[in-house]
Amino acid sequence: MTASQTEPAPHSKSRFSTVLPYLLVAPPILMVFGLIFFPALQSTLRTLTDAETGAFSLARYEMFFADKTSVTSLIFTIQIALESLLGLFVICFPLALYLRFNTSRIATGVQMISLLPMFVPGIMSAYALIRFVRGRGLFETLIYQVSPLLADAYYSPYVKPEGIVIGLIWEAIPFTVLILLAGLRQLDNGLIESAQDIGANRWYIFTRIILPLMRRSILIAFCLNFISMFGAYTIPYLLGPAAPQTMGVLMQRTLQDYQQPLEAETQAVITFLICSLVGLVYVQSVSGERVRKG
């Protein structure tokens, strides 16, 4: 065969085309590393060293833990976050289950309303809840229409720890419902039907099929909500009591009102460290999934 054997076009894998992807992703990557990972790391390291000698020192932590207000804040914040998470799951889990297995127009309405807080600016949510739950707010007004006596007994959560819990739950409902729903949608109707087919009751289906398959969504919802509640500011500041304060409020006060950036930094790093416990769980579950998906 006298085929004219043209040489294949030299594969134009120039230097440029190898570098191009990195050039394109560099700006956001540099921002993430330069303005998130680096400051976090730098702050962490700085809190562990003596400003003058540069030697390893726990002095700043000793100061933090010696201060009663700070420690109270830390414990208070953890407590608030856990209580809010508990309340959040008590509401969102059944809600997500209901939304997963119902397609009526009422279910659509329920879904739309449950997403509403996501579209409300944080500060507006705080304001709305204040106006709603405070003494002589709309909630008490409505109770009054039922019975003025009952209204007298109304205990407003405004400027109390409960106020923070209510606010944090309120803001987190849409996101949590969406994440749980995403998990629930992965489970096939056929899976449940076949379980019913072999005579499994509801409880069995829930604990043995639904829960295990939702492990990941639950983990992600738990971790992300914990982190965001731990670092919340607006709701605790506006709805919470003057004392104790959550870490967010404490940090802001320390930085801006008392002009103590070093102390504020220590407080920030402590929130990092606490959140890193759940953060690691999150990172692991997210990257595990990504790797598995390839």
Binding site: G231, M251, F272, S276
Partner: peptide, 8 residues
């Protein structure tokens, strides 16, 4: 996402 916003 693993960093609390306010602390960051």
């Amino acid at each position: 996402n693993a960093f609390p916003r306010f602390g960051l």
